[in-house]
Amino acid sequence: MNEQTIQMMVVNHPATFLRILGVYSRRGIQIDRMSINRADQQHLSNVRITVQCDSSMIDHLSKQLAKQVDVISVFKCSTYDKNNV
């Protein structure tokens, strides 16, 4: 179990996070930190979600998130990587 962060660009509308958070809750993953920032373009938002899970789970979650109609891009970035930058 490691701290794992996924960064996404999403189309933000009232039901977007119902679906995105559903990907986590269905797998029983608790969210530790989350931030949503509106991007320059209208309706688009940058999202960062940090959770504790193993690497195979984060692969699965990122594929499930990438599949969502409202998700434009997905990047996996572990906290460890971020500290090394």
Binding site: P14, A15, L18, R19, G22, R26, V69
Partner: peptide, 14 residues
């Protein structure tokens, strides 16, 4: 209905 069906739809609109 959007909330109820979100986990079992490919997508939904209101």
């Amino acid at each position: 209905v959007i909330g109820i069906t979100a986990p079992v739809t490919k997508y939904s609109f209101q």
